[in-house]
């Protein structure tokens, strides 16, 4: 049922996701298969981190568990590590607390 079928290190959580979750440590030079396409990793990526399932355009929404988790800061090629350097939050908190701990909007 997993679309990337032969992958040994990447988990797709939701069909709408454009990121995959690393479930075994990735080292530079490692190869894997994403959606039938071979990728060669150029960097170390730790368990729990994300990689792009395919090319993601700058400003495109990034989905994990079928839910948007932010937008790409730049074009992210398939197989690349996604983290603070290329993904930003879309969330702007609408609540805050003033100095007297009063709830303000």
């Amino acid at each position: 049922m997993q679309t990337e079928g032969k992958s040994r290190k990447l988990l797709r959580i939701h069909r709408d996701d454009n990121v995959l979750i690393v479930v075994a440590p990735i080292r530079p030079g490692d190869r894997d298969v994403i959606d039938g396409r071979e990728v060669v990793f150029t960097e170390s990526i730790a368990i729990g981190h994300k990689v792009a399932a395919g090319d993601i355009k700058a400003a495109e929404r990034v989905y994990k568990c079928g839910v948007p988790i932010g937008s790409a800061k730049e074009m992210i090629p398939g197989g690349a590590h996604i983290h603070l350097h290329n993904l930003k939050s879309d969330y702007i908190a609408t609540y805050t607390l003033d100095k007297d701990h009063v709830f303000v909007k």
């Binding site: 979750i21 690393v22 730790a46 368990i47 729990g48 981190h49 994300k50 994990k64 839910v67 948007p68 988790i69 932010g70 996604i82 983290h83 603070l84 993904l87 930003k88 939050s89 879309d90 969330y91």
Partner: peptide, 8 residues
């Protein structure tokens, strides 16, 4: 741990 944003 790989979490990038508060949404995530």
């Amino acid at each position: 741990g790989g979490l990038t944003t508060i949404e995530e």
